[in-house]
Design a protein around this nucleic acid. Structure first.
Length: 418
RNA sequence: GCGGUUGUGGUGAAGCGGUUAACACUCCGGAUUGUGGCUCCGGCACGCAUGGGUUCGAUCCCCAUCAAUCGCCCCA
């Protein structure tokens, strides 16, 4: 147990760190191009923030939060997602003061007590983007575009963009009621899950894998018939903007979001080969959240993307860049006096910003040479009694096997321009 | 949280009631004493996720736990 990380957590090891840094750099580059600034919020918040923000009845709040009481008797929760925190930070720091539209992005770990699977961890990483303060559907399109272009730019194929509208607090309840009425009549035909959904979230029934293909689904009420004018127009405009930008999307009237704060636009980007965890990014508009948390009525849109899932997808397509870290020089010392001499040279090289390594295992020269070779170093710097006595270094080019003995002060230039 | 599958060294794996626990790679050491990558030689599981049980005997059977994985739920 002592040597096992908690279930659902993972070490990111040195041989994987390259992929992570590469991905994070891509995110930062892209967000800069779109004009979004990075923000970092605390890993934990008051539990109440999530209860209110995400919604009491949601699965995330009901059964997936890491909640505990701290020593000051406060109820604290490890963030299961970042949007609520960002809205909190936006209000607390009055970020609305200087900008009509506040554009933020984040990268960080989130926590959800789920049953772990590939692509679904208890501590996982998300990158996300939030645009707060504008109701124009162009912003919805910008956010969707950012998510889409990002995944495309990584080289991923077979991505699918699905969009929908989930209405607003004015029209969604009407639709919800209609659905409940309709499905209550069919209750006998519904699967166990859906019978539960009937109360909790009837919109989800539309999405059910078991009941989805049953006859009565055909005639189930469609959201279009219930949308208020504002929501209908908004959705049409989003589609227009997306089309103008040349993005292919699929309208899926059954697409639903699991967090209560979503209004109007909802979208998801799927990468099917990932199986059950195919949702690689998802988000939408949340015009209701800011007021819910205690701010002025403020419209906002955003999305989050799962970094582990993206990395998984990249791996499947062989798109993860290989690490190519190489050092310039490797010290090889023969004997105790030479070891000290080599150590001095090693330190001098590093002071000159030349990457250098040395095997401290007091091994044979043969073993040290092997280590030098394996390290990928371009040069082996060989020193023994001879070199110590004459203040020289034998510089061996490991690629060409050519070697020459040079005065110690000439070593840096031999390495930089051989 | 529910259902299924799996769990042998650093890695990939064979073995499936009684074997020195195969093989390959990696790793370590060596091939005449100051030199790598190729080749050759040698070494590396006292143990088969963990804990119980069945049996004369268990890596192989049973149970539990833990973990991974697939699907569901949900979500990124």
């Amino acid at each position: 147990m002592l040597t096992n990380a908690p279930r659902g957590t993972k070490d990111i090891l040195p041989d994987q760190i390259n992929a992570w840094q590469w991905l994070e750099n891509k995110i930062r580059e892209l967000c800069e191009i779109y004009g979004y600034e990075e923000i970092r919020t605390p890993t934990f918040e008051h539990t109440e923030l999530f209860r209110r923000g995400i919604g009491e009845g949601t699965d995330v709040v009901e059964k997936e939060m890491y909640t505990f009481t701290d020593r000051g008797d406060r109820s604290i929760t490890l963030r299961p997602e970042n949007t609520a925190s960002i809205v909190r930070a936006y209000l607390q720091n009055k970020l609305y003061a200087n900008a009509g539209l506040t554009k933020l992005f984040y990268i960080g770990s989130m926590f959800r007590y789920d049953r772990p699977q590939a692509g679904r961890l208890r501590e996982f990483h998300q990158f996300g983007v939030e645009a707060i303060g504008e109701k124009n559907p162009a912003v919805d399109a910008e956010i969707i575009l950012l998510a889409w272009e990002f995944l495309k730019s990584l080289g991923l194929n077979d991505l699918k963009l699905k969009i929908n509208t989930v209405g607003c607090p004015k029209c969604r309840p009407i639709y919800r009621r209609k659905l409940t009425e309709y499905f209550t009549e069919e209750a006998d035909e519904l699967c166990g899950d859906c019978r539960r959904r009937l109360e909790k979230n009837p919109l989800r029934i539309l999405d059910c894998k078991i009941d989805g293909s049953k006859d009565f689904m055909e005639d189930a009420p469609k959201i279009e018939t219930c949308l208020c004018d504002e929501c209908r127009e908004h959705f049409n405009d989003v589609k227009k903007f997306l089309t103008a930008a040349g993005v292919e999307f699929e309208v899926n009237p059954r697409l639903v979001r699991g967090l209560d704060y979503y209004t109007k636009t909802a979208f998801e980007i799927q990468y099917a080969p990932l199986g059950a965890q195919s949702a690689v990014a998802g988000g939408g508009r949340y015009d209701w959240l800011i007021r819910e948390i205690g701010g002025e009525d403020t419209p906002a849109v955003g999305f989050a993307a799962g970094l582990e899932r993206i990395l998984l997808a990249l791996e499947l397509q062989g798109l993860v860049p290989a690490s190519d870290k190489k050092i310039a020089a490797f010290m090889v010392a023969n004997g105790a006096a030479a070891e000290i001499y080599a150590f001095k040279i090693l330190s001098d090289l590093r002071r000159k910003n030349i990457s250098a390594a040395m095997d401290f295992g007091k091994k044979s020269m043969k073993a040290q040479m092997k280590a030098a070779s394996k390290s990928g170093a371009k040069f082996a710097l060989i020193v023994g009694e001879d070199e110590v006595a004459t203040s020289t270094v034998t510089v061996k080019n490991l690629e060409t096997s050519a070697q020459e003995k040079v005065p110690v002060e000439e070593v840096p230039e031999k390495i930089i321009c051989p």
